[in-house]
Amino acid sequence: MNVIDIKNFKKSFGKKEVHRNVSFSVQEGECVGLIGGSGAGKSVLLRSLIGLEKPDSGEVFVEGENVAPYTEDQLIEIRKKVAYVFQNGALFDSMTVYENLAYPLREHTQLREEQISKRIHDLLDEFGLTANDHVYPADLSGGMQKRVGLARSIIINPKVVLYDEPTAGLDPFNTVKIQEMILRLKRKGTTSILVTHDMPTAFAVCDRIYLLKNGMVGAEGTIHDLKKDPEGLLSQFISGQGV
């Protein structure tokens, strides 16, 4: 069953046509990588899945609902099911790590404060962030901020997680940590879309990869297909020749 379905997606910024006609789908429990050159519109596509951007035309289906024409009020329910992990964490800098993680729980659940506290501390342990609960985001390293951002996004158990370059600018240790977390969620059955330039991460976590080129899906394939076809567009892109 397709959890995400994008059909004939078109989007321009001023005179610049970013997406001419993009269509792709993601099945339940699948992890799909979205790759392409800088400015190819990968993040815009990802943002449109939760209504942070609106397409000029086309349809964006999330669990069978076309969310493209939805208002901000209608999108609230979608945003509870589909989490977005921002490239730099986008943590609220006026709040501590604890408050950041408590935010979605207080907004969308009826949990008591002690239950919220337990959930947060369990998650911090799982993410290797124990004892950082009362630290402000500015006092965390980039890798830790990304991990807190990821923890905040998944704390209310979304069905789909959208990752916007989760490993960009990270050292190998933090990159592997993020990969492990994505894989852990995948094993739990969470559907994911990963926008990335980090090909080792894409190979480590993705089942399939879509390549955006000239405002369209230029190529698509599984990791297995990629390895089989070294002359294909995806392989060329990865080796720095194609796009």
Partner: peptide
Amino acid sequence: VTEQIDAIRALGTS
């Protein structure tokens, strides 16, 4: 500019 406004929206709040 640090996407915190978008994060508020993405977390299902206004």
